[in-house]
Measured scan of single mutants.
Amino acid sequence: TRVETATETAWISLVTALHLVLGLSAVLGLLLLRWQFPAHYRRLRHALW
């Protein structure tokens, strides 16, 4: 049971790290898009909202 718990903890930390990385890359990508294509971003936002 001790090994299982350790594996579970490792998986949880791995998944958390993955989610953090994905979230950060998504935010960075959005910022980059907004910085590179302001007109396109505004049009996209206008279409979405």
Rank of each mutant, 00 (worst) to 15 (best):
T1V: 13
R2Y: 13
R2P: 12
R2N: 10
R2V: 11
R2H: 13
V3D: 05
V3I: 13
E4I: 13
E4R: 12
T5N: 05
T5R: 04
T5A: 06
T5H: 01
A6P: 07
A6F: 03
A6W: 07
A6S: 14
T7F: 11
T7C: 02
E8M: 00
E8H: 02
T9D: 00
T9W: 11
A10H: 09
A10D: 02
W11L: 06
W11D: 00
W11F: 11
W11T: 00
I12D: 01
I12T: 09
I12K: 09
I12M: 07
I12A: 04
I12E: 04
S13E: 05
S13W: 14
S13T: 14
S13D: 07
L14T: 01
L14P: 05
L14A: 02
V15M: 09
V15I: 11
V15D: 01
V15Y: 03
V15N: 03
V15E: 05
V15G: 04
V15R: 02
T16N: 07
T16A: 10
A17L: 10
A17K: 02
L18S: 01
L18Y: 03
H19F: 01
H19T: 03
H19Q: 02
H19Y: 07
L20M: 10
L20I: 11
L20W: 07
V21Q: 01
V21T: 12
V21C: 12
V21Y: 04
V21D: 02
L22W: 06
L22M: 12
L22A: 13
L22H: 08
L22E: 07
G23Y: 07
G23V: 08
L24M: 09
S25F: 06
S25M: 05
S25T: 13
A26P: 01
A26R: 02
A26N: 02
A26G: 09
V27A: 09
V27L: 11
V27M: 14
V27R: 05
V27K: 03
L28H: 02
L28Q: 01
G29R: 05
L30H: 03
L30P: 06
L30G: 12
L30Y: 07
L30I: 12
L31N: 02
L32P: 06
L32R: 06
L33P: 08
L33H: 08
L33R: 06
R34A: 03
R34N: 05
R34C: 11
R34W: 10
R34F: 04
W35M: 15
W35I: 15
Q36K: 10
Q36G: 15
F37R: 02
F37M: 09
F37N: 10
F37K: 00
F37Q: 00
P38F: 08
P38L: 12
P38A: 15
A39H: 11
A39F: 12
H40K: 10
H40D: 05
Y41V: 15
R42E: 12
R43C: 15
R43P: 10
R43E: 08
R43K: 12
R43V: 08
R43F: 10
L44W: 10
L44I: 13
L44A: 14
L44F: 14
L44Y: 03
R45Q: 07
R45T: 09
R45I: 01
R45K: 12
R45W: 01
H46W: 00
H46N: 14
H46V: 10
H46F: 06
A47Q: 08
A47T: 02
L48N: 07
L48I: 15
L48E: 13
L48S: 08
W49C: 07
